[in-house]
Write a protein that binds this DNA or RNA. Sequence first.
DNA 1: GGGAAAAATCGACTGCGGTCAACTTTTATC
DNA 2: GATAAAAGTTGACCGCAGTCGATTTTTCCC
Lengths: 208, 208
Amino acid sequence: MTSIRETKKRRTRAAIMQAAVKLFSEKGFEKTSIEELAREAGIGKGTVYSYFQTKSDILHAFCEDELVCLHQELTANADKEIPLLRQMVNIYMSEFKMITENREFGRLFMQQTAFPRDADLEKHLENEDQYFRVLFPLLEKAQERGELRRDLELLHITGHFYGLYLLLVSAWFTGRVPTEEAEIALETLFRQALEGLQPPPAAGISTT
Amino acid sequence: MTSIRETKKRRTRAAIMQAAVKLFSEKGFEKTSIEELAREAGIGKGTVYSYFQTKSDILHAFCEDELVCLHQELTANADKEIPLLRQMVNIYMSEFKMITENREFGRLFMQQTAFPRDADLEKHLENEDQYFRVLFPLLEKAQERGELRRDLELLHITGHFYGLYLLLVSAWFTGRVPTEEAEIALETLFRQALEGLQPPPAAGISTT
DNA sequence: GGGAAAAATCGACTGCGGTCAACTTTTATC
DNA sequence: GATAAAAGTTGACCGCAGTCGATTTTTCCC
């Protein structure tokens, strides 16, 4: 039942997204006005707001579409038996690449993702759940392989990796970690998280 | 040499901050207009902008003042020889309390702190450095006591704690961690980071 | 203390995000 | 196909963040 209405709606939404990507890329998010965007998309200003609640929602919708693609790719490919460390680095680095492709996009997206407005909470939680559906199976397998402690909740474990990912992105925005070093930095951090920050308990006795 | 000018400037700045705290608390950040704030402070609208570059800078300045106080307190008190885990939980929990006192304040502050605008980078880096000056001595002491591996850079170690703190705050905003459980959650995460996520290498052989 | 340069104050103005009531298009019903 | 209800579109309009040139206050120098 593809009614005229449905078809038009999809077309209009697509037109908005297309105009948004074009203009945001060309002149940046802040410098693009909704009125201009509407003109580019061939519709009225008000119409934009019947598809998206705020200007940054448009950006956000775009990023989320990208993320969904990315997750599908990842679930399709990444089930392999490579070490958890590599898997995690791969997953988060593909996200990192997406985020850092456009600095302004990325900042707004991360700000909203890490500390979302209350109005966006529901959508946000859905997204997170989708995330967990990607990660949990990988973590379970790793637990089976003995790469992860079994006495920890999966939610906590994802938390550790996600926290370090947030840190990396934050450090990238502040310039502490340049793009080229991001992967090494992330891998180091993840490895340290796996090994633990305190000295191994049973091993050789320290010389002091 | 406290010229009239200096005195007035300090007084005006204080008046703005005072008006901001009052109005933001009463009616929230978004609902308070700069014009109103200026009226409350007894000055013209334009003057506000010769003290702060943007509206949220006012908020941010307030939070930073609070943070400086907090850090001074912490450096004064916290050098004691209690376990690193407790020290870290204390430090980050006092920050957490400040952030979560006012939801809207906290969100904006965290968004700007974790993913700052390029214009704010310099100020941001100064702040971070001040942070390190508080944390590094504590970490060094912990290394001396054998609570922390010595083969890790202090910067990385602070990163681990800070990353988990970001995670906690993010989880609080999404409602996954209620205020009452925050401290336990943070302590758990920090302990896990110290112990490591992978099973201890030398200990008993698994039953499988 | 006079007078000019520098700093600070001000509010009218601009531009944009977001709203809304009037209007047009689509659907459902007979 | 006529018609009424529902859904979708629109641009004039509103409120506010941020700008800027005109004006006032402070400092500095003689």
